[in-house]
Amino acid sequence: MQEVSFWTLLYRYFFFDWLFQDAGRGDAFQRAAAWRHNREQARWLPLYLWRWVCLGLMLYGLGSYFEVLLELPELSSFFYVPASLSVPVSAVIAAAWIGLKALPRPL
């Protein structure tokens, strides 16, 4: 078995694109199989959403700690910016999960 590097594992921990297949390529059977595969893999999206929400809250808490308690507003921006970027990532994950679970198979 091939050993996976730490950076690959870290990427896979936070980003989910490696779980899914392109449902827009191939003939009708391949697209249908990719859609079924993607719907099955959508079960992992709430876990990724939870990771991003926790990461955003943790970074926001660290930013608040540095800004309020340590009175270092310049340093707090290094935590607030990634915390704010976790919001759109969470929205994309939620939209993908709802779309894969609620929408019918494309024709």
Rank of each mutant, 00 (worst) to 15 (best):
M1K: 09
Q2T: 14
Q2G: 03
Q2D: 13
E3Y: 09
E3T: 12
V4N: 03
S5W: 02
W7R: 02
L9T: 12
L10Y: 08
L10P: 01
L10C: 07
Y13R: 12
F14G: 10
F14H: 03
F15V: 09
F15E: 09
F16P: 01
W18I: 02
F20H: 10
Q21T: 12
D22I: 14
A23P: 02
A23G: 02
A23W: 07
R25C: 11
R25H: 14
R25W: 03
A28Q: 08
R31P: 00
R39H: 08
A42C: 05
R43H: 05
R43Y: 11
R43C: 07
P46A: 06
P46V: 09
P46M: 06
L47V: 14
Y48V: 00
W50P: 00
R51S: 01
W52F: 11
G56W: 00
M58Q: 06
M58H: 14
L62G: 02
G63A: 06
S64Q: 11
Y65P: 09
F66L: 15
E67R: 13
E67S: 10
E67N: 14
L69K: 08
L69P: 06
E71S: 08
E71P: 11
P73N: 14
E74M: 15
L75T: 15
L75E: 14
S76K: 13
F79W: 13
Y80E: 04
P82H: 06
S84P: 02
L85N: 08
L85D: 05
S86H: 08
V87H: 03
I93R: 00
I93V: 07
A94P: 00
A95E: 11
A96G: 12
W97T: 02
I98H: 14
A102G: 01
A102P: 01
A102Q: 07
L103T: 07
P104N: 07
P104L: 05
P104Q: 09
R105A: 11
R105H: 10
L107S: 08
